[in-house]
């Protein structure tokens, strides 16, 4: 019997392991939304006026999101000034509306879209009260689009929404512990600081 050559088996073993590992991790049907997203909330008719700085200036957003099969979790941060998009140093647009956590996030992999709720204040809102808003993140060819719609009956902001175009600045593996800091909400629903 002709003996088998071990040199030919090595790549085969590696290939089998790669296939097994890939099958275990890559076939989940994810929408590929995980990572860090950033964008600028435009004022005016196109972007709506739900989110803006207290001085009426533009607001930068950072969405840190983790996607786990059908679930997503994450947080949404607001910052003042478009310069923040280039250097993450600007202060929050409103000291008490710096960060909101995502709740009940679900993914529809077929439409590459995630839906979640936000509980907290929104920068630029009239009374900075705690409101409940629905968020959706949808992948586009150039990035993603975040739509925030207030769903708080009784609030003057009810049904008002903002659409913000986002670009991905980091993948799921780039999320650091510091990126997940979101201070405890105050009784008003706002956070203690803009960090």
């Amino acid at each position: 019997m002709k003996p088998l050559r071990p040199v030919a088996l090595g790549p085969c073993i590696g290939w089998v392991l790669c296939v097994a590992a890939s099958a275990a991790t890559a076939c989940a049907g994810e929408a590929d939304l995980g990572g860090t997203w950033r964008g600028l909330a435009q004022l005016g008719p196109e972007g709506g006026d739900l989110v803006h700085g207290s001085e009426g200036g533009p607001v930068a957003l950072e969405l840190v999101i983790g996607e786990y099969g059908p679930d997503v979790a994450g947080l949404l941060r607001f910052f003042r000034g478009d310069s923040w998009l280039r250097a993450r140093s600007a202060e929050a647009p409103d000291r008490e509306c710096g960060c909101s956590l995502l709740h009940g996030g679900r993914v529809d992999a077929s439409t590459a879209q995630a839906a979640f709720t936000l509980q907290g204040c929104l920068p630029g809102a009239a009374d900075r009260a705690r409101v409940r808003a629905r968020g959706s993140l949808r992948r586009t060819t150039s990035g993603a689009v975040l739509v925030i719609t207030v769903d708080e009956p009784g609030s003057p902001l009810h049904k008002r929404s903002s659409t913000i175009a986002l670009e991905q600045t980091g993948g799921p593996g780039d999320i650091a512990l510091a990126d997940l800091a979101c201070p405890t909400a105050l009784p008003t629903g706002n956070t203690a600081s803009g960090q």
């Binding site: 983790g66 786990y68 679930d71 997503v72 979790a73 956590l101 996030g105 999320i175 997940l180 405890t184």
Partner: peptide
Amino acid sequence: SVDPDCKLFGTEHRL
């Protein structure tokens, strides 16, 4: 865990 908050923020997080 099946809780996505545990996965993203860690098991010690309040969420």
